[in-house]
Design a protein around this nucleic acid. Structure first.
Lengths: 122, 122
DNA sequence: CCCGCCGTTTCGATTTCCGAAGCGGTCACC
DNA sequence: GGTGACCGCTTCGGAAATCGAAACGGCGGG
């Protein structure tokens, strides 16, 4: 349950997700996260640091701990579901003439990714 | 990505999770969700309704759609990870004399569940 | 020296969330 | 028929989270 609280915060999941490819510095990570505000960034980072999901390298970059890696892997099915979901509610762009049922939750700049990563350790 | 936004809101995941056992009415669901405020509840419900993750029965109860069920299943690995995680950062209560690294993210009333459910469709 | 990037902090403005009260409705019970 | 308990849902003022931009010192290159 506590995880639902930790990850139920605005950018936690996103940070976890963006760190999947490897360590990132503060500003680079910030840029990847839709340029979220640095204040919240630091806050989320601290929380994840506390939760031992990420840790900080000597060169001050942030990296997933083994525990964090597992969490990210645990996120894979959800990512897979998200693709199916997107395809279901927004088949090809649909006619947003009067119907915008889905657009409320689909931010145009967050529509991306397709789990192109190859995790052999999965 | 959009899913991270939809589920990155304060009670979305929790609602999805609490609906796993079957349809629930507004107030019962609210009670299950740590008595969250009804205003936010309605908001989340509307978002999930829009996303076609849940739908409303003729008796006005809320139920997971097939898509919602899949989402909930996709959440299983995360739930499993959460258990391991809890065990890692909070072995048995730890000594919070000067160290409180984990207590910041562990709400006492949200520590529960152990995926006792049986999902044959997994 | 200057410039660009870095990690991080601070602060005021905006958005979200909370919590309690209230609305109209149904149903059981007396 | 009145009363009380629950229901789905809305409204509203205050608290908390989030934003956005500015600023700080540090570091490396030109």
């Amino acid at each position: 349950m506590a995880a639902l609280d930790l990850f139920g915060r605005r950018w936690s999941l996103r940070i976890l997700w963006e760190l999947r490819a490897g360590p990132l510095g503060f500003r680079p990570l910030q840029k990847r996260c839709d340029d979220m505000s640095s204040s919240v960034m630091r806050q989320r980072l601290t929380e994840l640091l506390d939760a031992q999901v990420i840790h900080q390298l000597p060169d001050s970059r942030y990296e997933l701990t083994p525990l964090g890696q597992e969490a990210r892997h645990a996120l894979n099915p959800l990512a897979r579901w998200a693709e199916r979901w997107a395809a279901t509610i927004d088949p090809q762009g649909s006619d947003h003439t009067d119907d915008q049922s889905a657009s409320r939750v689909l931010h145009p700049d967050t529509v991306d990714d397709g789990t192109p990563e190859r995790d052999s350790a999965d």
